[in-house]
Every structure is written in structure tokens, then in C-alpha cells.
Amino acid sequence: MHRYKELEIWKKSRLFCSQIYAITSKFPSDEKFGLTNQLRRASVSIPSNIAEGSSRSSNKDFSRFLEIAIGSAYVVETQLLIASDLGFVNTEELEIIANELNEIIKMISRFRTTLKI
């Protein structure tokens, strides 16, 4: 069992959620139950799956939850691109947040390789 609160991937992905909430707070109000909600839920899923996986008794189970977290990250990336296409996120903001997300994905992937399955 891992202490998720000590994992850099959990800390970084938790802060990333705050960034997504800040960005989506500027979206049009008619997107409250659309893209805003979807982006927020997918971003929350990343640290949540890391935390849940860390409680599992085997590294194989933990690895599966990390895989789900990576999947959620790709969902966030897709939704951010759609938000950009719709003009809700400017190019500079998209580049910054996408770089942060890619770093999280790389960190999770590297961490998964360290687990002895």
C-alpha cells in the first residue's frame, strides 16, 4: 500500500484540478452542465484514481487505477481542445495547461513502470 498524499503525481494532479476549475469558471454559463461539468469531473478523476489505487493490496490493482487516471487525463486533453475550438480557452492558456497535463501523464506512466507487478 502506498501513501497517496506523499506521491508527487497525486499532489501535482490535485493542483491541476484547481487550474481546471479556474479555467472552466470563465466558460459561458450555458456550458455549466456541458463541457464545464465534464472537464471538472475528468480532472477530479485523475487524483481520485491515484488515491483509490494506492489503497489496493496489490501493485497490479494499483497499476490498473493509474491506467484509468491516464485515461482521464486524455479525456481532459480532448475536452480542452474542444473548449479551445469553441473559443472558451485561448491558445496561450491551452498551451500552458496542456504542458502541465502532459507532465502529469509522463509522471504517472513512469511511476507505473516502477511498480513490480
Rank of each mutant, 00 (worst) to 15 (best):
D30H: 09
A83K: 10
S13A: 06
L66G: 03
E95K: 15
K60G: 03
R64I: 14
K11P: 00
N49P: 06
E67L: 12
C17G: 03
Q19L: 05
C17R: 02
S45A: 15
L66M: 13
I50Q: 04
C17Q: 05
L86Y: 06
R110N: 15
K32T: 07
E93G: 00
N90K: 05
I9S: 10
R41M: 02
N37C: 06
K12L: 08
P28G: 06
N102A: 08
Q19N: 13
K116W: 00
S25P: 00
L39E: 10
E92L: 12
N99C: 13
S29V: 14
N99F: 06
L15H: 10
Q79M: 15
I70Y: 02
S55R: 14
F33C: 04
W10Y: 04
N37P: 00
Y21D: 09
S29P: 00
L7C: 04
F65D: 04
N59V: 04
R110G: 10
I108F: 10
R14I: 00
V76F: 05
A73P: 01
L66F: 08
I117Y: 11
A73M: 01
E100C: 07
L101F: 13
E52P: 05
V76Y: 05
L7A: 03
E100K: 11
R112H: 02
L66D: 03
V89R: 11
I46P: 01
V89M: 11
F62G: 00
T114D: 05
K106T: 15
N99L: 12
S13V: 04
E6S: 03
E6I: 01
L101G: 13
R64K: 15
Y74I: 05
Y74T: 01
K60H: 09
R56T: 04
T78M: 13
I97L: 13
P47A: 11
S45R: 02
N59T: 12
Y21N: 06
L81I: 04
E67Q: 14
E52F: 07
A69G: 09
V89G: 08
L39P: 03
G87S: 09
R40L: 04
N59L: 11
I23L: 15
R41E: 01
N90C: 03
Y21L: 13
I97K: 14
L86A: 02
I104E: 12
A69H: 12
I117A: 08
I9Q: 10
Q19S: 08
I46N: 01
I108T: 08
L94W: 07
D85F: 00
F16P: 03
F111G: 07
N99E: 15
I82G: 02
N59H: 13
F62H: 12
R110T: 14
R56Y: 06
K116R: 15
E52C: 08
F88H: 09
I70C: 04
M107G: 11
N102S: 14
K106W: 07
L35Y: 05
D85I: 00
L15G: 12
G71S: 14
K106D: 14
R56Q: 10
E95A: 15
N37G: 01
R14Q: 10
N49F: 08
L39N: 08
S18A: 10
V76A: 09
A22E: 15
R110M: 09
K60I: 12
A42S: 15
S25L: 05
G71Q: 13
G71C: 11
K11T: 04
I96L: 14
R14M: 12
I105C: 03
S84N: 15
H2Y: 07
I117E: 13
